[in-house]
């Protein structure tokens, strides 16, 4: 693979642990290329007065065929769950092959430049 500058906007990596499924990126995306599925779970902690409800991320997918790499999702994420990575070598051979799911997006994380 050809080397590119490390600040290049090649792909967006996801940190699924940091993501709170707040949907801000989904709503801000001009192309509507991000999809999030989530559900809430009741967490009862011993000694707590009442149970808490936490959002659990089920699915985070980006359609790179649609994405215009504007970076608005990276900018608006309040929980620092999205990062630019310079990786650019991921052409697809079938329609729909450019939709990448949670794990694939998380796999880009190690290629994110040191922050």
């Amino acid at each position: 693979m050809t080397q590119v500058p490390e600040q290049a906007r090649g792909v967006i990596a996801l940190d699924p642990v940091a993501c709170t499924s707040c949907m801000i990126c989904v709503r801000e995306c001009p192309d509507w290329c991000i999809e999030i599925d989530s559900h809430t779970e009741e967490v009862t902690e011993p000694g707590a007065r009442r149970p808490r409800f936490v959002a659990v991320l089920d699915r985070f997918a980006i359609d790179w065929g649609l994405c215009m790499y504007c970076g608005i999702c990276v900018e608006v994420c309040p929980f620092d769950a999205l990062f630019w990575s310079p990786e650019h070598d991921y052409p697809a051979s079938e329609p729909g092959g450019l939709v990448q799911e949670t794990q694939r997006l998380a796999d880009w994380l190690p290629s994110v430049p040191q922050r």
């Binding site: 050809t2 590119v4 290049a8 790179w64 065929g65 994405c67 790499y69 052409p91 092959g97 450019l98």
Partner: peptide
């Protein structure tokens, strides 16, 4: 046969 993502894609892609 090949879909190259990007807006625009890099020349390397």
């Amino acid at each position: 046969h090949s879909y190259v993502p990007g807006c625009p894609p890099r020349p390397e892609a």
